[in-house]
Nucleic acid binder design. Structure first.
Lengths: 226, 226
DNA sequence: TATAATTATTAAGAAATCTTAAGAAATTTC
DNA sequence: GAAATTTCTTAAGATTTCTTAATAATTATA
């Protein structure tokens, strides 16, 4: 679970990070609203702890901006314990409100409580999303693939590559693009590794791998599904 | 939306009721833990506001009893503002904690916040009595499992894991997912616990654990029942 | 057409993941 | 408080998946 901690006071961010890390959460740090929004778009954040008073973009505005697109739990932090502020924050779409100075264990307990509900059974409102391209059918939720009604067994990496390409139909991905998206790392793997995976996927989903119907190569650029 | 308000102080219950009614919520009242549990079984309650210090059955015990079967949001009320109590309450499965004396508008804001999340995620819990998957039959109410008509004895954790997977048929749960749902905690690194429990469950419910019919592995991702 | 560049194929060893077993630690039961 | 049960830890063995490397085939271009 990835938690984004946002406060312009680096000491506070660091101390919160220590407590959360102790509970095996991954912590991402940001020091103002702009940085927070950047971090949100670049990472798979599951919960945000957000200070209200910050330079550039304050917590409430950041929260409202976030709520335009995302629904993750947000715990507001503030020095003010004015009821009016709490109400404003909660009305703006926060899930909880903690006033400074706070007991770190209480904050951790509140984080757990929010995550418990958010990730609880079936709560993650995943609709049964499917990508269908001719006879190729990818079920995102169950991570299953069918071709002409027949179930296909893909390995985790094979599946991720196929989902990436199918999700972005007609877009061309270089080997490097695929690597970055699937492995989430910088260190490059041997450059024909991708080719090998592509071959394996083709072997499984194509009638005739020599003349791929789904997974096509674009010479000198990369691969695509169209 | 129906809100159950529980406090042994009738004045408090009444004043909360006035504020909630003003927001068009329907209020159900109870004055101790026993009454609360009765009210819960007799009404379609969507959220509970629960005082901690009460005669007969205190708030924490009431909450724990509730959590055995239901998942509605619970806001704890307490005169103590001790952090230890907050943590205990939140750990026991509460969704929020408000200390007396409180600003009624803040309480209403927190109620709204909880309901927003609860209803947004479509958590209206369907409590199916039984899950049947071929010869596997799980009775949710009695927490019993039968395979081909024969009773199977599972330990509490084993049962919870199986129910989780069976309730969400075909959905794949990583070890981390299972951990979060069953233990309400994050996984420690290098943990093999889930694998061992899976093995034990298979030993009990599968004819041939080597070729599981119900509890299947999805390599590199997790486990599922389908 | 010859040549260089890129992609495809294959097989095998390396790495990661899962299974199994056995015993220790914690909890519950009697 | 001892025994039984349940849960967790550890580690070796089995299986699956990933990567590498060497070679073949294809495409573009000079």
């Amino acid at each position: 679970m990835n938690i984004l901690v946002v406060d312009d006071d680096k000491e506070i961010v660091d101390s919160i990070a220590i407590f959360l890390s102790g509970e095996n959460y991954t912590v991402i740090k940001a020091y103002d609203g702009i940085e927070a929004l950047d971090a949100l778009s670049e990472n798979d954040v599951h919960l945000m702890i957000l200070d209200i008073m910050m330079p550039k973009l304050d917590g409430i505005k950041t929260l409202m901006k976030l709520r335009e697109t995302r629904n993750i739990p947000v715990v507001l932090l503030s020095a003010k314990s004015e009821d009016a502020d709490k109400i404003l924050g909660l009305t703006a779409g926060a899930d909880d409100y903690v006033t400074k100075p706070f007991n770190p264990s209480e904050l951790v307990a509140r984080v757990k409580s929010q995550l418990r509900r958010y990730t609880a059974l079936g709560s993650i409102a995943k609709q049964n999303e499917e990508i269908v391209i001719d006879g190729l059918c990818i079920n995102i939720e169950n991570k299953t693939v069918r071709v002409d009604g027949e179930d296909i067994r893909l390995t985790p990496i094979e599946y991720k590559i196929l989902e990436l390409l199918a999700r972005n139909r007609k877009r061309i991905f270089s080997a490097e693009d695929i690597y970055r998206n699937v492995w989430n790392e910088e260190t490059a793997v041997g450059d024909n590794t991708i080719a090998v995976h592509i071959r394996h996927i083709r072997e499984k989903i194509e009638i005739n791998p020599k003349e791929p119907k789904y997974l096509k190569v674009v010479w000198g650029i990369g691969y695509k599904v169209d």
